[in-house]
Design a protein around this nucleic acid. Sequence first.
DNA 1: TTGAAAGCGCTACCAT
DNA 2: ATGGTAGCGCTTTCAA
Lengths: 342, 342
Amino acid sequence: MNGRRVTIVDVAARAGVAISSASSALNGRSGVSQATRERVQEAARELGYVPSLRGRSLSTQRAFSIGFVLHRSLEVLEADPFFGAFIGGIEQAISPRGYALVLQVGSTLEEAEGRYRELAANRRVDGVLLNELRIDDSRIDLVQEIGLPAVGIVPPIDSFPLPCVRQGSAAGVRALVRHLVELGHRNIAHVAGPPGFVHSQERIDAWRGALEEAGLATGALIPGDFTYDGGRAAADEIAAMAERPSAVVCANDLSAVGLMIRAQELGWSVPGDLSICGYDGIALGTYVRPTLTTVQASPRRVGAAAAELLLDLIDDPEANALRHVDLPAGELVVGTSTGPVA
Amino acid sequence: MNGRRVTIVDVAARAGVAISSASSALNGRSGVSQATRERVQEAARELGYVPSLRGRSLSTQRAFSIGFVLHRSLEVLEADPFFGAFIGGIEQAISPRGYALVLQVGSTLEEAEGRYRELAANRRVDGVLLNELRIDDSRIDLVQEIGLPAVGIVPPIDSFPLPCVRQGSAAGVRALVRHLVELGHRNIAHVAGPPGFVHSQERIDAWRGALEEAGLATGALIPGDFTYDGGRAAADEIAAMAERPSAVVCANDLSAVGLMIRAQELGWSVPGDLSICGYDGIALGTYVRPTLTTVQASPRRVGAAAAELLLDLIDDPEANALRHVDLPAGELVVGTSTGPVA
DNA sequence: TTGAAAGCGCTACCAT
DNA sequence: ATGGTAGCGCTTTCAA
């Protein structure tokens, strides 16, 4: 590489115009003649000019990047491939617009909050994505307080105070329950997600509601935590029950797989003795036998939509202050882990 | 939030000193009296001053972030949780040093290269991590050509021209083969990684070498691509073989699981008819039945070590120009997918 | 020890 | 349409 980087000064000099004209020409602003514009662009090309993000950043007060904090334990991260797709979606949406993703990891919620504060304080990013929201999530106050543009990823609740991408899991969970009911199941349990999460609650409500619609009694609500081991524990819990359910809807695929493996270890046939379904549609569900009945979510699309909305928000805070994008619900994927009641 | 952000000018004014003194005081540089230093720090605290990364960035010519480009198809990303841990390790190493991770995705190698070029051209990052290197990887020339600090993640080869973190899989593969030999296997095949990758080749060589050491004939070398479906295809290939191996070492866990599931579908008993092992030690291997015999790699540690080295390199290019860090090999994890030869 | 001032590379305002 | 020029917030050199 040759010594100094080529700057806009070099380009302007070469084109024989003022720096300001060069800037306007390169950024497609008006106020330059066609001839000048072409001369500048020509000079830039010849010199291999690439605008410095730093200079631009300082002068425009923009970082040209957005932030996302994974607030999960590293252990879960290792097991759950969900984020790969989500991040892929984000990238896909922002890179064409010249933005980059700054990814941070905070294992606890407190740590995650700290990272958001940091990102905001030093203005490393122009906005952040908020996912896996808790009920009364403190991050909402946080971003409002520090004036950091933020987009939430939430179920379709009406009262969310920030712009958000809404993908409901209620419809999917209902579809799962209906599927089970059609197979003749009458006692359908639910392995929940960790308490406090908006989407944990949403799935619980949807499961309850669907049972009600079908005229069935509410089944057992078994605590869970979205992990493989949580699913295994749920199986043991079921084993200890006086009246076992014939089917169970898990809050996500990972715990469903844990439940299924443990059930098989306990000597049960799946779906013969117990029908199992999950939620998410991760690849793992197609690897195990029987294959998992689940709902195919689209983390990639969610990531892309949320990132897109965030950039819009950054560009025009007023117009997008309360915009929300509704994404279609996931589709039912019938695997071999659910079958007719014995 | 109050209108304007507080800058170093505000701090200096409040402390009643010059901006340059404030800067020195805050950054622990010498040339300020203890009294001044304290007064400045006090003022900064009172004002809630956080240095602007942008200003610092422009003046120091540093981005305070490093880049990593995932060059994988989104499909694989969704299935392979490897990167979660890797990224966690990176984050863990850099965030205490005030750095952030800029993550990009390039599905093809060409696209990935483009992203590296971009990162370098606009100086969005101070350095990059290079993993999954190919033989004669073009990115090596690229970073050298554009003068972008880079750290490679490679097997322990001597000739690597960049600073690197070396974690060999050879020892692990040998351990797998020895394990199989002890179980009485004499015909041990290998499902390879995609051709052209350094670590694909390393594993092929290690498998061959270990067979030779054991005085056995080289087994079948079955092409693969690190994916689940590649593993399934390998099972079909084995099914078509005149003389089937009694055991197979796969280049990674994901393909081993694919192979195993397909083998079971074909009616084979695992490990009765075929012993199978993988490499990586991903959680998936403990979910399936039988559980996968594999080698536990440590992507988190690799990520952390590589990031650490990269920051050292950025801080002192000369001293670290050819430094390499050797990481211990992974450990053999014996699951139930391998057993005595029938 | 302290302070003034010159950049870093860019944008945008204001004369011309 | 064009060209100066004043920032953006910081670091760093050089005088005082």
